[in-house]
Every structure is written in structure tokens, then in C-alpha cells.
Design a binder for these strands. Structure first.
Lengths: 182, 182
DNA sequence: AGAGTTAGTAGACGCTTGTTTACTTGTCAA
DNA sequence: TTGACAAGTAAACAAGCGTCTACTAACTCT
């Protein structure tokens, strides 16, 4: 057994991220995380403090939604629509996005979750917008993003696979344009 | 102590509905429900079987979203937009809707939840629509409905209270019209 | 080579969970 | 009035939880 604190804590963090993304905060136990990481349970607490703090660090791993939002503001609605259409169709979504979808309702993570969504989605979209109350319009876009997560979680991937994906994407684009326009 | 099975089981069901709506499935214990109903814990299991079965019965209590969906199909987008705008602004939402928002990710209730949303929202909206793949369009509307629930749960009531509510409702209406049109 | 630091481990702690069993008590028909 | 059935109760069950303490063993520095 090689002793490498950095590697072990990274394995724990990745295991936590993947398990939280797959099953939700409440359904994942510290022992599950430790087992998945091939580490001892006590180390999880030692390195990350509490379960909620570990969840927060796993959330901060970074999400690709940020790169979707960044870029030309004129194409923002298109990029978001494409992203959501893909998410509805395919099973593979990146871990952090799934973490938010499946986070659950534990009081100890609500503040963490809210701060994360506010900082990485609402604020960043709002920063791209001109005109009055950009945050209000960004919140409407966030409604669709979070709603897609709920639909995907409830109905599973491939719900729309049988029907016209391009048609769905076109509708999503028009809906985003309405939510974002000045 | 009067002994009245019907009254007691009704109090238990109402207590469960209100507590699940307020705190979510995982955060509510059988003992909390029994205490709120002024009944013994064993009675909760005796009358409803398991916690998941109790959740299912509480969901079936009925929701007013169904009456919003019913009615003139031409005004459906307007009615849904108004409903969501009110929900974003005010704190008072009816219990069953909140139950769905805060249900959580427990595997034993996922099927129940999915069936409920499918039957009371997606199918009923789809039944109002003409044209090709009505279920796909109804699912987009459901995305907005569920997304509003997520936003409200995360950011709390009154998020949009400081800004123009009528403006939000107008955008929501246009977005619903796009999701529902043939 | 030996001491000190630190990663890793085993196990227990106390607490909570959903559910069940054995029992008591009220109610109503005969 | 009595006996039976049903409503209600107390307590325990077994299992699981997050967290912490005491310990072992590997690595580093002098």
C-alpha cells in the first residue's frame, strides 16, 4: 500500500461526485464513498470534515455548463437549447449537473446548492444580458435548465428519443430566446 | 379519547401530506407524522402499510393543477403562466404540488412520483393538444412546471417579488405557447 | 539507525430509522 | 352484563447512519 494523501483524497472526491450524481445526497453513505474510493471511512471525515462539506467540494469540481454559457451572447439561446436537447435524449450527463438534479432536500445542503446554482448559472447568464432586470430573465432560463433535470430524473433518459429531437431543440431555442430577450 | 378509525387515518394522511410537502420524503419520519396527527406510530404502519405507500396515498389526495389544465385548450398557456407566476411570487402553494417539488430521490418513491406526474400533468396536457406528438409538447410544458418548482425550492418564495410580476407572466405565457403549439 | 510525523485502519459510540409484536382499553352486539 | 372484536399503545427489534478515538505502520529527516 503506497501512502499518498493527495491521491487518496482525490479518489474520495471523485467517488463522492460520481455516487452523489448517480443516487442523490441522501442515498449515498460515507461508507459507500469510502468503498468506491478504496479508502477507509475515517479518512473521508478526516480529509473533508462532514458529509455536507464533501458534497460542497464535489460540487465545486466544475461543470461544463459554464463553458456553454460563456461565449457569444447572441448564440446563448441556441447553445442552451442544444445542450438540453442532448440531455433529454442521451443518458450521459456530466456528474455535477446530475448532482444538482438529484441533490434532494436535505436542509444541510440547500444553502450550498442554492449558492452553486446562483453563481454558476443565474449570475453567469445574467452577466451576458443587456436591458432591464437581467437576473429575472436569467432565472427563467434557469427554470428550463432545472426543469430538464427534473424531467430527466423522473422519466429517465431517452424519453424523447422516439420523437423528433430537432423539433424539440427548435422549440427549446425559441423558448430560451423569449426568456432571455430584453 | 374517542376511538374512530376513519378520523384517525384521515388525520394521519393529512399530517403526512403536509409534512412531506414542507420537508420532503427523506426528512419526514413516521414518528413525526404520528406526532403531528396525534396518533401512535404503529397505527401509521397498520393503516397505510409502508412509508412509501403512505406517500403514494398522500399524493393521490388530488391537486388543483388538474383543474388549471382542464378547460378551454385555447387559454391553457395563459392559465399555466398565471399559475406559475403566482407560484414564483407567493409562498403558499398547495401541498401536493410541493410534495412533488420536494419529493427527493428515494428509489422507493421514484416510480410513484413518475406515474403521478405522467398521469396528472403530461397525459392531461397532451389530451388537450391537436397536431403531431402531443406528448412531446406536453413534456416541454411539464419541464417548465417542474422547473418552477425547483427554482422555488432553491431560491425560496418571493424571488421575483421585487421585480415586475406581469412581465414574468407574459414571458411564461409566450414560452408555454411555443411549447404547446402544433 | 532512530525518532518523529503522518497516512491509514479497526472498531466502537450514540443515535435514528421503519417496522413489528405483545399488550391494554374502549365499544357495541347478544 | 358479558364476551368479542377492533382501536390504540408501549416497547422492542434489527439495521443503518455520521462521526470519532485509539491504534498501527509507513515514510522522512537528522
Amino acid at each position: 500500500m503506497t501512502r499518498d494523501r493527495e491521491a487518496t483524497s482525490r479518489r474520495i472526491l471523485e467517488a463522492a461526485r460520481d455516487l452523489f450524481a448517480a443516487h442523490g445526497y441522501d442515498q449515498v453513505t460515507m461508507r459507500m464513498i469510502a468503498a468506491e474510493a478504496g479508502a477507509n471511512v475515517a479518512l473521508v471525515n478526516r480529509y473533508f470534515g462532514t458529509k455536507a462539506a464533501l458534497f460542497a467540494e464535489a460540487l465545486a469540481t466544475g461543470s461544463t455548463i459554464e463553458s456553454v454559457i460563456a461565449g457569444d451572447p447572441a448564440g446563448l439561446a441556441s447553445r442552451l437549447a442544444h445542450r438540453l436537447a442532448v440531455r433529454l435524449q442521451s443518458g450521459a450527463t456530466e456528474p455535477v449537473t446530475r448532482m444538482v438534479d438529484r441533490a434532494g432536500t436535505s436542509p444541510e445542503i440547500q444553502a450550498i446548492l442554492r449558492a452553486h446554482v446562483e453563481a454558476t448559472v443565474v449570475k453567469r447568464i445574467a452577466a451576458q444580458l443587456d436591458g432591464p432586470h437581467p437576473e429575472q430573465r436569467a432565472l427563467l432560463a434557469a427554470t428550463m435548465i432545472l426543469g430538464t433535470g427534473s424531467v430527466r430524473r423522473l422519466f429517465g433518459p431517452g424519453v424523447i428519443e422516439a420523437v423528433d429531437a430537432e423539433e424539440v431543440e427548435a422549440r427549446l431555442r425559441a423558448m430560451f430566446e423569449i426568456s432571455l430577450r430584453p
